[in-house]
Design a binder for these strands. Structure first.
Length: 817
DNA sequence: GTCGGCTTTGAG
DNA sequence: CATCGCTCAAAGCCGAC
């Protein structure tokens, strides 16, 4: 063993030391050898390879001697030449001995000439795996076991599989779940970048609002001088994934994606962009853009890592003493400070960029800084990648504007950019030219609001709407709707399967809704239906392909968070859209109008915190136990408790304004009074409307005249009419006989025309209505009469024709009782 | 002109 | 193997009064 020098000696085995430069990696002796080699007569080129070959030859001679001295003549590794990568068990030294003593060769480096037959490694970072993709890579046990068994075992049995992309699928081959599987949603979302983006965004917004409640923030007023910092990671996903997998983001062209061909590129680095590759492209397209044979590195998503880096990023911003840190997304924020000098801005930008880079292992952010949102945004465009730019109003020259494209403006995308550029002749190409357009012609081109916004933007000013994020951030970040969209993997055969899917989606939304302590009073169902000219299976695996969208919304009389009501409504709406189950490619459910749930907690028993605090200590212990057992909470009585009369009054209000009223009551008396006047007016108006509808319906010229039905195509209005009719008669004597006859005729016509979904819809709406009203009016004659109508008149219409439905079973469950 | 429902657009 | 095309908000548009 004495023949081994330090570098090569197994005694000097350094395990998986981080990679060093070639020279750094040499031992003192090795370095001397190398220098000797360089200085020797070979005047041409003495390369790294040459050096290694020389060394390998010397090594082989030593190995041969070793074998002759210690070997037992066994040559099971004959023809095998191994290279050990990284830390292994047994270690490099032992493996070396095992192999050379039994007829094999041991390579100390990987040459390009292919002398190495197998690579031995216990684990391999992704970067290495990509590099070594053409080698046979196996675990050290292959050597050990082969020795033990006295023969060369098949290396394939010991092939090294990566823990992420190769072992996992083998361990769980059943993870392929179709949309019919209960776990589909969960699985899909766990891998969807867009879902993550959306979720992160709403989490950040919610967090902002919570902080607001804890400690009201200092909001600048519109007259204050402000400085806006728009801070954004450079190709966030690509940077983080590259870092996590040991790639240099500046060296290779890198894309983040799932697949190989028709998979979306979520993020690509600037190296890849040099070849024209862009986010959102398909991988196949991108690969074709690479110049001859140059490799495009594909990396997977690491959502946990994205989240972690973002957290560190935001931590820095929060620690930076800004007036406001406004979250835009996982990798982007707008920070507001007071009036600052250019120097101060400069040092802030530098400090933040350095700081972020150091806590994210080298990910870079770019920063745009100015005194308006739109200018900060444009400065950010200028600064990318890996830079910052501070813009003063007075340096806004032609150079600044003419190097910006129309769709660099916030809120201007492909469609608007096209509209604008084509609007004048010659076409407008940059912002300098766009600045010439008058407000009037801009508004004629893109609409009133957008025209105004753009007009101001190219003058460096924010419009009213854009400013809201600064001047009323709490309102801006308030959630106004809640929805779920799935447009991938949707392939159903029967409407029954779709019903189940709707159930799951609804449950998903309701869980969130309850978490938010909200209720909804308007639902929208949007579906994607395969276009007539689109093939059954589009190019993208399980993609939606070209589709036609259809949307329909319904209003619920009373806000609700009940699963049954909502899912029934959605299913019935789905039927009204008449989409054959097999043609469905996407589905979205939205809760449009959210209202605060009237706190159930206040109705539950609770102990006033004041009273609780004053209890003698020995009693407290006992009480605690009991309270716990009963799940009763100790709670401070609301200081601003509205009296019960008012509360009751509010409950009676139209839901849209209830929220406002509750807030208003808590504010000043004056505001309260004016608001009440307004509300009274509105109530009067609404009552009037109801009366009108009722009168109309009950009068001689009822809308339900069959002749009118034939021409009446607006089913929604009819529905509204019917619901008003129910509402208007439920607390008195029920429907008038004459109206009922007309109604029955209408149903019959629908039924005859095979418009069963419409009948079903009417039926479900009425039953929902009754359900909602049952608490208050179930004792009324009108209510009971309507129940009778539903069961004896409407349902038979459905059941008589139920064979025309695909979901016979569903109908039985819902109505036959 | 206003209202409400549906569509379109853009954002990250 | 493929592949994971979400989800929010605002504005425009159109038909009904």
């Amino acid at each position: 063993m004495s023949g081994y020098n330090q570098e090569d000696s197994p005694l000097g085995n350094r395990g998986n030391v981080p990679e060093k430069s070639f020279l750094e990696s040499l031992s003192d002796d090795g370095l001397l050898d190398y220098i000797t080699g360089l200085s020797q007569e070979r005047s041409e080129q003495y390369s790294r390879e040459d050096y290694f070959h020389d060394k390998q030859r010397r090594q082989d001679r030593q190995d041969q001697e070793f074998r002759e001295r210690y070997g037992d003549g066994c040559d099971i590794f004959s023809g095998v030449s191994i290279y050990v990568n990284g830390f292994t068990k047994p270690g490099r030294m032992q493996l070396h001995e095992m192999v050379i003593a039994n007829g094999g060769k041991f390579a100390h480096f990987l040459s390009s000439k292919g002398q190495v037959s197998h690579i031995i490694a216990s684990n391999l970072p992704l970067k290495k795996r990509v590099e070594l993709a053409n080698y046979k890579i196996c675990r050290p046990e292959w050597i050990v076991d082969s020795l033990q068994r006295g023969k060369l075992l098949p290396w394939q049995d010991y092939a090294l599989l990566s823990d992420q992309d190769e072992i996992q699928p083998k361990l769980q081959p059943t993870t392929i779940v179709s949309c019919k599987h209960p776990e589909f949603l969960k699985q899909f979302f766990s891998k969807s970048r867009l879902h993550h983006l959306s979720n992160w965004k709403s989490d950040l917004r919610a967090e902002f609002c919570e902080k607001f409640l804890e400690k009201p923030l200092h909001i600048p007023s519109k007259n204050d001088d402000i400085t806006v910092f728009h801070i954004d990671f450079d190709c966030f996903f690509a940077s983080v994934s590259a870092m996590a997998n040991g790639f240099d983001i500046h060296a290779d062209p890198i894309v983040v994606c799932h697949g190989t061909k028709n998979s979306d590129i979520a993020s690509c680095n600037y190296e890849a962009r040099r070849y024209g590759i862009r986010n959102g492209m398909w991988v196949g397209t991108a690969e074709r853009m690479m110049p001859g044979g140059k490799r495009l590195v594909r990396l997977g998503y690491d959502f946990d890592q994205f989240e972690l880096m973002s957290k560190r990023f935001y931590q820095i911003l929060h620690d930076s003493q800004f007036q406001l840190v406004l979250p835009i997304s996982i990798d982007e924020a707008v920070c507001i400070a007071g009036n600052l000098s250019h120097m101060e801005c400069d040092s802030i930008c530098q400090r933040i960029r350095e700081h972020v880079s150091s806590v994210t292992n080298g990910c870079t952010v770019s920063i745009g800084c100015a005194n308006s949102l739109v200018l900060a945004r444009l400065a950010l465009k200028w600064s990318k990648p890996n830079g910052y730019r501070i813009v003063n109003c007075d340096e806004l020259d032609a150079t600044f504007w003419s190097n910006l494209k129309i769709d660099d403006l916030p809120g201007v995308g492909r469609s608007l950019a096209y509209k604008i550029s084509e609007y004048s002749n010659p076409p407008i190409g940059n912002l300098c030219e766009l600045r010439q357009m008058t407000l009037d012609s801009l508004q004629r081109c893109v609409g009133e609001k957008m025209g105004n916004k753009i007009y101001l933007a190219v003058r460096g000013k924010d419009d009213e709407e854009s400013g809201k994020i600064i001047y009323d951030p709490k309102q801006f970040f308030q959630r106004k709707s809640l929805s779920i969209d799935i447009n991938w993997g949707i392939r159903f055969d029967t409407i029954y399967e779709i019903d189940q899917f709707i159930d799951r989606c609804t449950q998903y939304l309701i869980d969130k809704l309850k978490e938010l302590n909200k209720k909804t009073s308007q639902l929208t169902l949007k579906i994607m239906k395969r276009s007539k000219d689109e093939s059954i299976e589009p190019p993208k695996y399980l993609g939606m392909g070209k589709c036609d969208p259809f949307a329909r919304s319904t209003r619920l009389g009373v806000p609700t968070d009940e699963f049954g009501i909502i899912t029934t409504e959605i299913k019935s709406t789905f039927r009204s859209l008449c989409c054959p189950p097999k043609e469905l490619r996407g589905i979205a459910i939205q809760f449009n109008k959210l209202e605060n749930s009237v706190s159930n907690q206040s109705k539950l028993p609770f102990v006033d915190a004041k009273i609780y605090q004053n209890l003698p200590n020995d009693v407290k212990g006992e009480i605690d136990q009991e309270l716990n057992r009963r799940k009763i909470k100790v709670k401070a009585t609301a200081a601003k408790r509205i009296n019960s009369y008012q509360e009751q009054f509010i409950q009676e209000l139209p839901t849209q304004i209830r929220n406002e009223v509750e807030n208003e009551i808590i504010i000043t008396n004056k505001a309260k009074r004016t608001k009440f006047d307004e509300i009274k007016e509105q109530i009067a108006k609404r009552q009037n409307e109801k009366m009108n509808a009722k009168a109309h319906f009950l009068g001689e010229t009822t809308v339900l005249l069959p002749i009118k039905f034939q021409n009446q195509t607006n089913f929604k209005r009819i529905i509204q009419l019917i619901l008003n009719w129910v509402d208007g008669t439920i607390r008195s004597r029920g429907p008038h006989e004459k109206d009922l006859k007309l109604f029955e005729k209408y149903l019959q016509r629908l039924s005859d025309a095979n418009r069963l979904p419409l009948v079903l819809r009417i039926c479900k709406l009425i039953s929902t209505k009754l359900e909602l009203r049952s608490e208050l009016f179930s004792h009324c004659n009108g209510f009971q009469e309507w129940e009778r109508v539903l069961l004896q008149i409407i349902l038979p219409k459905l059941n008589k024709n139920k064979h025309t439905f695909q979901t016979v079973r569903k109908l039985d469950i819902d109505f036959d009782t």
